[in-house]
Computed example of a mutant assay.
Amino acid sequence: MLLVDNILLAPFNGLIWVFKEVHKAAQQEIDGEAEHVAHALSELYMQLETGELTEEQFAAQEKVLLDRLDEIWEREEGAADATEATEQMDEPEDHDRDD
């Protein structure tokens, strides 16, 4: 009977695998974006120290980058919350039954 179950569930298992791979790729892209913003911030600080930027220019560009970094973190938190909720729904509930 297990063979029949595996055959019947194969399309669903394949679809779940595809969704997991898409999620993993999206997560890697988000992580890369956060690293890019952090790198841009460190370059910005170096430009300030070398005198390439004024304090006003630095403050304006820093605000943009920090806002973008906050957005990335909020998306990550939202995705983590959604993943946690999905995992909780997948877990079987343990009910004590008196049969």
Rank of each mutant, 00 (worst) to 15 (best):
M1F: 04
M1C: 00
L3A: 12
D5A: 14
N6P: 06
N6Y: 12
I7K: 13
L8P: 01
L8S: 03
L9K: 13
L9T: 14
L9H: 05
P11K: 03
P11T: 03
N13Q: 10
G14I: 07
L15Y: 15
I16T: 09
V18Y: 15
F19E: 08
E21D: 06
E21S: 04
E21Y: 03
V22K: 12
V22M: 14
H23S: 15
H23D: 14
H23P: 04
H23V: 14
H23I: 15
K24Y: 08
A25Q: 11
A26E: 13
A26G: 14
Q27D: 10
Q27R: 12
Q28C: 08
Q28S: 13
D31Q: 13
D31F: 05
E33N: 14
E33Y: 10
E35N: 05
H36F: 07
H36E: 11
V37R: 06
A38Y: 02
A38F: 04
H39T: 13
H39A: 12
S42W: 02
S42K: 12
S42E: 11
L44R: 02
L44F: 07
M46S: 07
E49S: 11
T50W: 00
T50D: 03
G51M: 01
G51D: 01
G51C: 01
G51P: 00
E52R: 13
E52M: 05
L53S: 04
T54Y: 06
T54V: 06
E55G: 09
E56S: 09
E56I: 10
Q57K: 04
F58A: 08
F58S: 06
E62L: 00
E62R: 11
E62G: 00
V64E: 06
L65W: 04
L66S: 09
D70Q: 05
D70K: 13
D70W: 02
E71H: 00
I72T: 06
I72A: 06
I72Y: 04
I72Q: 01
W73V: 05
W73L: 10
W73K: 12
E74G: 00
R75S: 10
E76C: 06
E77Q: 09
G78S: 03
G78P: 05
G78V: 07
A80P: 01
A80N: 15
D81R: 08
A82Y: 03
T83W: 14
A85G: 02
A85T: 07
A85W: 08
T86H: 12
T86G: 05
E87C: 06
E87V: 09
E87N: 12
E87A: 07
Q88D: 12
Q88T: 12
M89G: 00
E91C: 08
E93M: 11
E93H: 10
E93L: 11
D94T: 15
D94K: 14
H95D: 03
D96H: 09
D96N: 06
R97W: 08
D98F: 12
D98M: 09
